[in-house]
């Protein structure tokens, strides 16, 4: 829908003029460096969570971790698609989409099909599907701005929205990721850290049951590093779980919650 008639001309985003590449790889490989936003390696970004962000949904939540901003709406339980077979247990349907301005370069939103299926797998273990037989619960996420660690934020936000919608859950799901950069493990990585990482590690868990619903590990890892990363993630998940719980409690009494992880 260009302003003038005819085909939209090809466009490009102006790139920074100084292409020095700022010796990035070497910096991250060093034992000691400062993260772009000045956090320490094992410090998460401040989390802002709010339920009931979308009035027309059964339940919804908004999450902001640094510049990562996500809205999740939950609809249902409602009638399953006509083509679906009869089912004694409920169905979960997840969809994640990115706004065109979410990424630094326009319309470069990550493969949302893949993200949708990861979200589905992370959530399904915690939902009591037997509580809504024959029907479907839809979980729709929209990434307003992608500022690193998008997937864990989407998962945590989705479980908050499910709780807001009153869907029966075994526990809230919280998710945190860790990037391995050289010798260091950094928690809740930023996009520039994610793009230079040697390996990534993500956990989605039910903090009060000490159960993991999803664990993704990519890249090169040594066993001690895996153990360290697991511990880091589980600790952060516990803390995030507390924040999410207090956010839900606060929603009942009115107000929102901002806390440091």
């Amino acid at each position: 829908m260009a302003g003038k008639g005819g085909a939209t001309p090809a466009t490009y985003a102006p790139s920074p003029s100084t292409k020095k590449d700022k010796k990035k790889p070497s910096t991250f490989a060093d034992a000691d460096w400062v993260r772009p936003d000045g956090r320490s390696f094992h410090q998460c970004r401040p989390a802002f969570l709010k339920t009931a962000a979308v009035n027309s949904a059964s339940g919804s939540a908004y999450a902001e971790f640094g510049s990562t901003k996500v809205i999740v709406s939950v609809f249902g339980p409602r009638e399953s698609k006509k083509a679906m077979m009869y089912s004694d247990v409920g169905r979960l349907n997840c969809n994640v989409s990115y706004t065109t301005f979410a990424t630094p370069i326009r319309g470069q939103g990550a493969d949302s099909k893949e993200v949708s299926s990861v979200l589905h797998k992370a959530l399904e273990g915690a939902i009591i599907l037997e509580s809504f037989p024959k029907t479907t619960v839809d979980v729709f996420a929209l990434v307003l701005e992608s500022g690193g660690s998008d997937l864990p934020v989407i998962i945590s936000c989705a479980s908050l929205a499910l709780a807001d919608a009153g869907i029966m859950l075994y526990d809230l799901i919280t998710s945190v990721s860790v990037s391995c950069l050289g010798k260091n493990l950094v928690i809740d990585p930023l996009p520039e850290e994610e793009s230079n990482q040697d390996g990534s590690f993500m956990i989605a868990c039910m903090p009060s049951r000490d159960e993991i619903t999803q664990l993704t590990l990519t890249g090169e890892w040594s066993t001690p590093k895996i153990n360290e990363a697991t511990q880091l993630c589980l600790d952060a998940c516990k803390k995030l779980g507390k924040i999410m719980r207090s956010c839900l409690k606060e929603a009942v009494s009115g107000g929102s919650q901002e806390e440091e992880l």
Partner: peptide
Amino acid sequence: CIAIDFHMPPICS
């Protein structure tokens, strides 16, 4: 040029 587009993602309704 200004290219204007309006989106209604599934979260909105």
